[in-house]
Computed example of a mutant assay.
Amino acid sequence: MASTAAHHATGWAAGVIAAALVAHSGAVGPYHVWIVAAFAAGVAGSTAPDWLEVAWWSRKRRLWITHRTATHWGVGWIVLLAGAYRWLGHDALAAPLLGFACGGVMHLLADWPNPLGVPWIAGRHSLNWWNSGRCDVLVVGASWVSAWFVVVHFSAHGWYGWHAVPWLRKIGVGRFI
């Protein structure tokens, strides 16, 4: 399991990815409200697999299901992501649902390298690369590289495009872009 800070940092990247996908689909809504909703839901969804396990209705706030079982099931999150993407532009809730699902999938990807693993289909699978809380910089870095890739490739048109590239090239950072 990645640390809480890593899940929050990857959640911001998931929010950026969701916002770029909503912008690319054209389902931005009035005043681009669905882009903002997708971003906010992506940030919230990045910790959802963990907080959905807590019995918030009880005083003790104990887990009501075992950690990394149903709330960490990869198929469920991917189906939610695909369904929300499919309904973009047809239903008002599709954009925030897409963001929430992006955050959930990002959470699973951050937990996958841990020896405990993630139940993608039937049983848990682990990449078994490192123990909990270690190498969070790699997980966060990979999430932000993914966000950069999605923004560059899916929002290249319109005002929300990647307008920073010429500026980055001028200061020498963008020579790789």
Results as ranks from 00 to 15, higher is better:
Ile65Phe: 08
Trp57Met: 11
Trp87Lys: 13
Pro115Cys: 04
Gly74Asn: 14
Trp12Leu: 10
Leu138Thr: 03
Leu97His: 07
Pro113Cys: 01
Val33Tyr: 09
Arg169Ile: 09
Met1Cys: 11
Val16Ser: 03
Asn131Glu: 10
Gly174Phe: 01
Cys135Asn: 13
Val137Phe: 05
Asn131Ser: 09
Leu52Ser: 10
Ala41Gly: 12
Arg68Ile: 12
Gly89Tyr: 12
His163Asp: 08
Ile121Arg: 14
Ile177Glu: 08
Tyr85Phe: 09
Ile177His: 01
Cys102Arg: 01
Leu81Ala: 04
Thr71Arg: 11
Gly141Val: 06
Ala147Val: 04
Leu116Lys: 03
Gly76His: 00
Gly99Cys: 08
Gly26Ser: 15
His72Asp: 10
Trp56Ser: 09
Phe100Asp: 07
Val79Cys: 05
Ile17Phe: 00
His24Val: 02
Ala37Leu: 12
Thr10Leu: 05
Val152Arg: 14
Val43Ile: 15
Thr4Pro: 01
Val33Pro: 04
Val118Asn: 13
Leu108Tyr: 09
Pro96Tyr: 04
Phe100Asn: 07
Trp129Phe: 00
Ala70Ser: 11
Arg169Ala: 05
Pro49Val: 15
Val165Tyr: 03
Gly133Lys: 13
Val139Ser: 04
Tyr160Asp: 07
Ala122Asn: 12
Val150Ala: 01
Leu81Asn: 02
Trp34Met: 11
Ala23Glu: 05
Gly76Ser: 14
Ala44His: 03
Leu108Lys: 06
Trp73Val: 10
Ala44Pro: 05
Leu108Gln: 12
Pro30Thr: 15
Asp111Glu: 14
Ser143Tyr: 05
Ala27Pro: 11
Asp91Gly: 06
Trp148Thr: 06
Pro119Glu: 01
Ile121Pro: 09
Ala164Trp: 13
Leu63Ser: 14
Arg134Thr: 11
Ile35Val: 15
Thr66Leu: 10
Trp129Lys: 13
Trp167Pro: 03
Gly83Glu: 03
His157Met: 05
Ala82Trp: 00
Ala95Thr: 06
Gly89Trp: 09
Leu81Glu: 04
Glu53Pro: 08
Leu52Gly: 06
His8Pro: 02
Gly158Glu: 03
His67Thr: 14
Met1Gly: 14
Leu52Pro: 03
Arg61Pro: 07
Gly104Thr: 12
Val54Asp: 09
Ala13Val: 02
Val137Lys: 12
Pro119Ile: 07
His8Leu: 14
His72Ala: 12
Ala101Trp: 05
Tyr85Leu: 10
Pro115Gln: 02
His125Tyr: 11
Gly103Leu: 07
Ala41Phe: 02
